[in-house]
Design a protein around this nucleic acid. Structure first.
Length: 259
DNA sequence: GCCCTATGTTAAA
DNA sequence: TTAACCTAGGGCT
């Protein structure tokens, strides 16, 4: 379930339940061989930037990226269960267990490598210190469509296919518009909208993007304006929601509201 | 139980 | 542009 909000939730969980403690780290599946290098060491801090999770252990920094399959399973078992399935990495501290399956990346970084990864990431709307202007200026210089730019982690980090579709709908903006042709105030409005919406995702674990449904535990089918609603009537104008491929990813939009 | 799909990214062609 | 990664949930039979 990986867009930025999920990763920030995970960072919060590690910060609360694992940070400051010595953590047993293993790789039941065996593919994370470097687990030995941090096994039993102290977790200094946990931090999310966009969709990347960084666990700062004393000897090295662990970078985890869930990709499209990766999943976390957190629990507080009375007795330690046998790993089920392919558990890439297992973390244990003070009664808390975290099992990681199917990540794209689970690797140790030096400080230098860590900074290099960070340098390739655009501002994260969930980072209170993020600089909106970096996002606005990159979009303003680019001939690439705004739909693709929102998915480019070096332009803005943490946005995925769901937030992209919903943010563009909420901005009444055609996803095909080249970045440089989107009025600056609209680009700024998209940023501010992400800053407003994504913390709700961190809080609830759900991507809540519809006015009036921001608090309610809405059924999944009702939750979105356009995402996965192709062929259904637009909630605002009744026009049928469109779907097309944009750079290998499915793009959902209302061709009337987002003209 | 089987088939399809997925909130993603990278490397090779 | 395409393939690979490689897990789980949902819809269907």
């Amino acid at each position: 379930m990986p867009e930025g909000h999920t990763v920030h939730r995970t960072a919060n969980h590690f910060r609360k339940n694992f940070a400051g403690q010595n953590v047993a780290v293993s790789s039941p599946q065996g593919r994370f061989t470097d687990s030995k290098l941090i096994d039993g060491s102290k977790l200094i801090s946990a931090k999310a930037v966009g969709k990347q999770l960084f666990l700062h252990f004393e000897p090295a920094i662990l970078r985890i990226h869930l990709g499209i399959y990766g999943k976390w399973q957190f629990s507080q078992p009375a007795e330690l269960p046998e790993p089920r399935g392919a558990v890439r990495a297992r973390f244990i501290a003070a009664g808390h267990l975290a099992d990681l399956r199917g990540p794209t990346a689970c690797e140790l970084l030096t400080d230098e490598q860590y900074l290099q990864v960070l340098s390739r990431l655009g501002p994260d709307p969930l980072d209170p210190g993020a600089e909106m202007t970096k996002f606005v200026e990159k979009v303003g210089r680019s001939a690439v469509s705004i739909g693709q730019l929102l998915m480019d982690q070096s332009v803005i980090s943490g946005i995925g296919n769901v937030y992209r579709a919903e943010l563009l709908f909420r901005a009444n903006l055609d996803p095909h518009t080249p970045g440089k042709l989107v009025p600056r105030e609209i680009v700024e409005a998209i940023w501010r909208d992400a800053v407003a919406l994504m913390p709700l995702g961190v809080k609830t674990g759900l991507m809540l993007t519809r006015e009036g449904f921001l608090k309610a535990k809405t059924k999944k089918a009702d939750r979105y304006y356009v995402y996965k609603r192709e062929g259904l009537a637009c909630r605002e104008c009744g026009n049928l929601i469109s779907i097309e491929l944009m750079a290998t990813r499915k793009l959902y939009f209302c061709s009337a509201c987002q003209a």
